[in-house]
């Protein structure tokens, strides 16, 4: 499904670096793991002691914890309007992988967070099965340490008529890749896949999505925004595939990035692969600096430049944050984004 035969999870499981995706795998050209990892670390040990508090703990009654890839219970999400937090915590310098599975057949909110400390190497790959009548809202906050290498994958199947909306917020890591593969069921099913990346220092984040419309009448809406500074590198790869016969598919993809330093980099590949004729698909991509005119305007109004830059950057990213449907999660994310942008601005 990933379009590449190589995977970090398999490399971790077998200990064989030849299994690592490299820049020769088209889908990994900007996130080369084979060139980075010469030898896989030992398997991660169990985490001893308290995991502390997660960012979404106050919003939910129950939190599932996955420390160093160890999954203690099967995650089941059924029943009435409910909300679950999943904390994936990595610690140490070992390698670990996990493969949680979830079924969703009602309205549900999944609040995922990825946190930890150390130079761990990990892959977490979720299977999300959104059945008929299901409506999953997924918020993924990836706040990992600067030395970690992490792949966070989700294989999502969306039944006809079901709904899925996701917002990924990425702070980057040594290498951090968040990929979502969505098998779109059509029949009025609607998907929204959003993303935000805020990168500083030498952090790297890669947001990759593949949406496959195989049945008629599916909707997809994507908006990803990124801010990079210092020597950070942001990658966005979005692919929308409309199979033959998947008519009346409607897909929109937008990716917009701000580069706030001379040495930061943004790479983007928004792809459309269309095999049906009765479709309306579009993508837009922009990369650039902050609007000088808006800065000038703010200066005219007496706002100091640092302040003005922070306000404009927050507004730029805010468009994505505003689309989060879960009130509590939206405010957690908004505060996280503001703190991150302000602290980065204060460093300048």
């Amino acid at each position: 499904m990933s379009g590449s035969l190589h995977s970090l999870a398999r490399a971790i499981e077998t200990g064989d670096v030849a299994e690592l995706p490299s820049r020769h795998d088209e889908d990994w050209r900007w996130t080369d793991l084979a060139g980075l990892i010469r030898q896989l670390p030992q398997p991660s040990a169990e985490i001893e002691g308290d995991l502390g508090k997660g960012p979404f703990d106050d919003l939910v009654g129950h939190t599932v914890r996955i420390p160093n890839g160890r999954l203690s219970s099967v995650i089941a999400m059924t029943g009435a309007d409910s909300c679950l937090a999943v904390r994936v915590v990595g610690r140490g310098a070992g390698a670990h992988a996990s493969h949680p599975k979830l079924h969703v057949d009602g309205p549900f909110t999944l609040l995922e967070s990825y946190e930890g400390e150390g130079a761990y190497v990990s892959e977490t790959r979720l299977r999300l099965d959104i059945r008929s009548g299901g409506d999953l809202r997924r918020i993924v906050l990836c706040d990992e340490p600067a030395d970690a290498v992490s792949v966070i994958g989700a294989d999502v199947t969306l039944a006809p008529g079901a709904r899925f909306s996701q917002t990924v917020i990425a702070a980057g890591a040594r290498r951090q890749r968040i990929e979502t593969h969505l098998a779109h069921g059509g029949g009025g099913a609607a998907a929204r896949l959003d993303g935000v990346y805020l990168l500083a220092e030498r952090r790297h984040a890669d947001i990759t999505t593949v949406v496959s419309h195989s049945e008629p009448g599916g909707f997809t809406d994507q908006l990803t925004k990124g801010v990079v500074r210092d020597q950070a590198r942001g990658v966005f790869q979005g692919r929308i595939v409309v199979a033959q016969g998947a008519d009346q598919s409607n897909a929109n993809m937008g990716h917009h990035a701000l580069i706030l330093s001379e040495r930061a980099e943004v790479d983007a590949k928004p792809e459309l692969e269309i095999f049906a004729d009765d479709v309306a698909c579009a993508h837009g991509n922009t990369v650039g600096a902050l609007d000088e005119e808006a800065l000038f305007y703010a200066g005219q109004r007496g706002i100091p430049e640092t302040e003005a830059r922070a306000i404009l950057t927050e507004a730029f990213v805010g468009e994505v944050v505003d689309r989060i449907e879960h009130d509590g999660a939206r405010e957690v994310v908004r505060a996280w984004v503001a703190a991150r942008l302000r602290s980065a601005a204060a460093d300048v």
Binding site: S261, R263, A280, A282, V287, A289
Partner: peptide
């Protein structure tokens, strides 16, 4: 940081 790229596509 001073490059400005715009891309739009429709099908």
């Amino acid at each position: 940081g001073s490059a400005r790229f715009e891309h739009e596509a429709t099908t």
